[in-house]
C-alpha cells in the first residue's frame, strides 16, 4: 500500500477551518480538532438524551388522553421524539463513541439532558404547553442547527425539523381548544402556561454573557446563533400566539417595545442551575425510569444478540 505524504496538524487545522469558512460540512472521516470532536460528542449526545427523556412527561398522559384522536396524535408525537433521539444517537456515533457508552454516561450522570424535562406534567393542558412551548423552543434552536458544520448532525436536524413541524401545531391546538372550552379547561390551560413558560425560556441556555462554551462553538459553526438571539426570537413569536387565544404570559415585567418586540423580565437562574445540577422536581424520577427500562431490557438485548449470532 502506498502511504500518502503526512500533513502536519497545523496544515490540517487550516484546511479544516477553511472548509468551515466556506460553509462546507465536516464529515466523520475528515480530520477535526479534538476540541471540535469533544464539543460535538457532548452537544449531540445531550440533544439525543433530551429527546429520549423528553418522551416521559408526555408519556405520563398517553393512557389518559381524552379522545382517540388526541391519543393517536400524542402517541405518534412521543414516538417521533424517540425517533429523533435515534437519529441523534446515530449522528453522535459517527464521532467514534457507541450508543452503549452514551447511555452509560447518561446513567452515571456524566451526560446531561435538557432540564426542562425535569418539570412534571400535571394536567392535560400540559400536553398543549409542551408541544407549543417546549417543542416551539426546540424548533427555534433546531432550525438554526440545520446549518451546523458537522454533516451527520446537520442532516439529522434537517430530518427532525421536517418531522417536528406538526408537534408545535398539535400543542397549540390543544391549548386553543381548551381556551374555547369550559372554565375548568381554561384554568388548566393558563396553569400549564404558567408552569412551562419559564422552563421553556431556560431551554435556550444561559445568557450569552454567562455562556462559557459559546466561543469556539460559534467560530467552528457548530452553533449558528447565540442563546439570547434565539430566545428573543422565540419570545417574539410566541407572545402574540398566547394573546390570540386569551392566555396571559406569566411575566409581570414584560415590556412591549416600540419596534413590536418584547423585553422579558429576569429569568430565575437559580432554579435553572438547581435543576441542571440534579435538584429539579423530577430529575431522579426521569433518570430512574430510563435506568429501570434499560435494566429490564437487558435480557432481551442479550437473547437478541445470541440468537442473531447463531443464525
Amino acid at each position: 500500500m502506498i502511504e500518502t505524504k503526512a500533513i502536519s496538524n497545523e496544515e490540517l487545522l487550516l484546511q479544516f477551518e477553511a472548509k468551515i469558512e466556506a460553509e462546507q460540512k465536516i464529515e466523520p472521516l475528515d480530520w477535526m480538532p479534538d476540541e471540535y470532536r469533544n464539543h460535538l460528542i457532548r452537544q449531540i449526545s445531550q440533544h439525543a438524551h433530551s429527546e429520549v427523556i423528553g418522551m416521559q412527561p408526555e408519556g405520563n398522559w398517553i393512557t389518559r388522553a381524552p379522545s382517540l384522536r388526541s391519543k393517536k396524535i400524542l402517541l405518534a408525537k412521543i414516538q417521533d421524539e424517540g425517533g429523533h433521539g435515534l437519529y441523534l444517537y446515530s449522528a453522535a456515533e459517527t464521532l467514534g463513541v457507541s450508543r452503549d457508552q452514551y447511555i452509560q454516561w447518561l446513567h452515571e450522570g456524566k451526560a446531561k439532558y435538557s432540564s426542562v424535562f425535569n418539570s412534571p406534567a400535571l394536567n392535560w393542558a400540559d400536553m398543549g404547553a409542551i408541544g407549543w412551548l417546549v417543542d416551539g423552543a426546540a424548533i427555534t434552536n433546531q432550525v438554526s442547527l440545520q446549518r451546523t458544520s458537522y454533516g451527520p448532525y446537520s442532516r439529522a436536524m434537517v430530518r427532525i425539523c421536517k418531522e417536528e413541524s406538526f408537534h408545535q401545531r398539535q400543542g397549540y391546538e390543544i391549548m386553543w381548544k381548551m381556551m374555547e372550552g369550559t372554565k375548568d379547561q381554561q384554568e388548566m390551560a393558563q396553569d400549564a402556561l404558567n408552569r412551562w413558560w419559564w422552563p421553556a425560556l431556560m431551554m435556550f441556555g444561559p445568557h450569552d454573557s454567562d455562556s462559557p462554551r459559546t466561543g469556539n462553538a460559534m467560530k467552528w459553526k457548530i452553533k449558528r446563533e447565540t442563546n439570547d438571539y434565539l430566545r428573543e426570537k422565540f419570545i417574539n413569536k410566541t407572545i402574540p400566539q398566547a394573546e390570540l387565544i386569551g392566555l396571559k404570559v406569566p411575566d409581570a415585567n414584560l415590556i412591549l417595545l416600540e419596534d413590536g418586540t418584547y423585553k422579558h423580565g429576569d429569568i430565575n437562574w437559580d432554579d435553572f442551575w438547581k435543576n441542571v445540577n440534579g435538584n429539579g422536581p423530577c430529575n431522579e424520577q426521569r433518570l430512574d425510569h430510563h435506568i429501570k427500562a434499560h435494566k429490564e431490557g437487558s435480557w432481551v438485548r442479550e437473547t437478541a444478540y445470541v440468537s442473531g449470532k447463531n443464525k
Binding site: S90, R301, E302
Partner: peptide, 8 residues
C-alpha cells in the same frame, strides 16, 4: 458482553 445495543 452480550448486553449491547446491537450492530449499526
Amino acid at each position: 458482553n452480550q448486553d449491547t445495543q446491537g450492530e449499526l
